[in-house]
Every structure is written in structure tokens, then in C-alpha cells.
């Protein structure tokens, strides 16, 4: 039971990181990316390769993952600079679909559909550690960084260009640089989450990095509340405890649990958008002004 709870807590922390970083681009910069799982996947594969072929050092894996995912964030920053709104969503969907194919075909790097197996247990300074404390520390750091950025000049710039891009530009803000940096930060964070995910499961394959996963993370952010500090984390907790909770409901056949879970979160997304577009947390802290 303790092992079960620890496992759930680790997964929640990892998805908390994902949701918090996605919230950073969606909630603050107003860039609606539906390709977050791509960078999660890049980080996971990079971290797994480091652990498999160099040393299973958690810190090194995270750094490499952050560099790879952050570097490739340019793929998404490029369309973000060119287009907005529906067009960007379309571009990120396109990237997600291409990446899914690439992940299942680039067998040398990703192991194809079979994935990468037998990733060694992570170590830190030569000692074997479990992923839970690492994930919690990373989550805390990312939330801290988000809170700092939110108050600082950079966060204000992002919010300004989210609300009125032309006005922000007219006031001398460098829109291109701000957007690129925001993407870089968010994707590097997703990469770290990926590396931790790979080390925790000691197995990764393309199934975890598909569009469904991107949508799940997006749902976490939205259900929790975009643009809030704690919203995404709360969204991650709610959506991840859902399957655990449904497993105890007697009248749902085991084969349908997955479908019922998806129906619940789909319904939650739609109803929230109709009745409470600011999300669960958004309403508490800021009232209807943000809607």
C-alpha cells in the first residue's frame, strides 16, 4: 500500500511539473500548445539514453533532457512567432502528430514501439535514490521559479503580450525573445519531467508521448485553472487520482474504466468551459475578472 501511494505520488509530482510548465506558456504567454507530450517524450528518451549508456546519474539525465527538450523547443517557437490562436494550435497539433510517428520509427534513439527497457535505477552522487524526492524537489523548484517569474518583469511582459501583443510591442517589449524564452523554459521543464518519468518507470515507449497525453496535461491545466500557480498541480492530482478512485467503484467493468475516465475528463473540460472558464482555482483567487 505504501509502495502504491509512493508510486502515485511520484507520478503526480511528474505530471505536476508537466502541467505547471505547460501552464507557463498557456496561462502566462497565451501560447496554446497541444504538443507538450513531445517535449516530455524527448526528455524521457534523452534521460533514458544517458542512464543506459553513460551513467544512471539522475542529475546528469535531467540536465541532458532539459538541454535536448529546450533546444528542440525552437521547433515550436518558430510557428509561435509567426501565427497566433487557431493557427498555432494547428501547428502544434501537426508537430505532435509528426513527433509521434518519429518516436515510433526512430528505433536507434527511441527503441520504436517496443521502447527502451531496463533503464537502471537512478543514482545521485553515487548513491541509489528513488525518484519521488527528486520529483518533489523539481516540482517545488519549478513552482518557485514560476512564482518568481510571475511577479518579475519577465512574467509581466509575457502577460502583457498575452493580453495585447501589439500594445506590448509598441511599449518596446521584445515579443520574439519573450516568446522564445517562455517556450524554452516550459519545454526544458517538460524534458526534466520526462527524464524523471523514464528513471521512475525504468521503461519508456511511444504510448506515453502521444496526443492523448498532451490533451491530458492540457486538461490538468484547464481544470485546475490557467494562469494560476497551484491550479495545474491540483488538476494533476484530480485527474491522476480519478483512475485510482474509479478502480474502487464496483459497477464499472474493469475493461471500461479507461473509457469512463476519459468520458469524465472530457465532460469536465466541456462543462468547465461553459460554466467556469477560469478553472477550479482561478475562480477562487481572482473571481470572474479573469474569465
Amino acid at each position: 500500500m505504501i509502495a502504491y501511494a509512493a508510486n502515485l505520488a511520484t507520478i503526480v509530482a511528474i505530471f505536476g511539473i508537466l502541467a505547471a510548465t505547460l501552464n507557463f506558456v498557456v496561462g502566462f504567454a497565451g501560447i496554446f500548445s497541444v504538443a507538450h507530450a513531445v517535449f516530455f517524450g524527448l526528455g524521457a528518451y534523452a534521460g533514458a539514453q544517458v542512464a543506459l549508456h553513460i551513467v544512471p546519474d539522475a542529475l546528469l539525465a535531467c540536465v541532458v533532457a532539459a538541454v535536448v527538450a529546450g533546444g528542440l523547443s525552437l521547433c515550436l517557437a518558430l510557428p509561435a512567432l509567426r501565427v497566433r490562436g487557431e493557427y498555432f494550435v494547428a501547428a502544434s497539433l501537426g508537430l505532435q502528430m509528426m513527433a509521434t510517428t518519429l518516436f515510433s520509427e526512430a528505433k536507434a534513439f527511441t527503441g520504436g514501439i517496443g521502447g527502451l527497457v531496463a533503464i537502471p535505477r537512478p543514482t545521485l552522487f553515487g548513491m541509489e535514490v528513488s525518484v519521488l524526492p527528486l520529483a518533489l524537489v523539481a516540482l517545488a523548484l519549478i513552482l518557485f521559479a514560476t512564482a518568481l517569474l510571475q511577479r518579475g518583469a519577465f512574467g509581466r511582459t509575457l502577460q502583457a503580450l498575452r493580453d495585447a501583443e501589439s500594445a506590448a510591442e509598441a511599449l518596446g517589449k521584445n515579443v520574439a525573445a519573450a516568446k522564445t524564452l517562455a517556450m524554452l523554459f516550459a519545454c526544458a521543464g517538460a524534458g526534466i519531467a520526462g527524464a524523471l518519468f523514464a528513471l521512475h518507470l525504468s521503461f519508456v515507449n511511444v504510448e506515453s508521448f502521444t496526443m492523448d497525453q498532451s490533451v491530458l496535461v492540457m486538461a490538468m491545466v484547464i481544470i485546475g485553472g490557467t494562469g494560476t500557480l497551484w491550479g495545474p498541480v491540483i488538476g494533476a492530482i484530480i485527474l491522476l487520482s480519478l483512475p485510482a478512485g474509479l478502480a474502487f467503484v464496483p459497477f464499472i467493468p474493469a475493461t471500461e474504466v479507461g473509457a469512463v475516465q476519459q468520458i469524465i475528463y472530457g465532460l469536465a473540460m466541456t462543462l468547465l468551459m461553459i460554466f467556469r472558464p477560469a478553472g477550479l482555482v482561478g475562480d477562487l483567487s481572482k473571481g470572474r475578472a479573469t474569465a
Binding site: 498557456v26 496554446f32 487557431e86 476519459q262 468520458i263 472530457g266 473540460m269 466541456t270 468551459m273 461553459i274
Partner: peptide
């Protein structure tokens, strides 16, 4: 409010529900 993202997410939710 008319934000396109709100519309997109709501529609996406319906698509997920119907698919399942």
C-alpha cells in the same frame, strides 16, 4: 466570452466523450 481557446477545449471535451 469568445476566446477561441475556451471554444476549442469545450469542443475537444465533447469529442473525447463521444469517442469513448
Amino acid at each position: 466570452e469568445g476566446s477561441f481557446f475556451t471554444v476549442f477545449v469545450a469542443a475537444f471535451g465533447v469529442a473525447v466523450v463521444v469517442q469513448n
